[in-house]
């Protein structure tokens, strides 16, 4: 069953990429559609992050520390890897402190 899931994922994702590159090559004129597509990545990434991130670690407190570190680093314009590493480090440190308490 897992392979069927993977096949559906791969198929849909490929078609999204391939159709506009081969058959449908016209520009999108509709302003609402343009705007909608512009906002989708941000809305989608945020919907996946909140509240999911708070249950990704062994404690919501350490997860909150990771999220805060990520937002702070990203706010200062740090790159993807720095932000991701900073989030991991904050979770690690927070869990060390939680264990000691």
């Amino acid at each position: 069953m897992i392979y069927v899931y993977i096949a559906v994922m791969a198929g849909v994702t490929y078609l999204i990429r391939a159709v506009p590159l081969t058959v449908f090559r016209k520009k999108i004129e509709n302003r609402f559609v343009q705007s909608f597509l512009y906002y989708v990545p941000y809305a989608c990434l945020t919907a996946m992050t909140v509240p999911g991130i708070f249950y990704a670690t062994r404690s919501p407190i350490s997860a909150a520390a990771g999220a805060a570190a990520a937002v702070a680093l990203a706010f200062r314009g740090k790159g993807l890897l720095t932000v991701a590493a900073g989030a991991c480090a904050a979770v690690f440190l927070a869990e060390q402190i939680l264990i000691c308490l």
Binding site: Y42, G52, T57, R58, V71, A74, L80, A87
Partner: peptide, 21 residues
């Protein structure tokens, strides 16, 4: 487990890095 727990937020960190700026 403590390392696995920390690395679990890496992907979320990437998402935050895209959206925040």
């Amino acid at each position: 487990p403590v390392l696995g727990s920390a690395l679990n937020v890496a992907l979320y960190g990437m998402f935050i890095a895209v959206v925040t700026p």
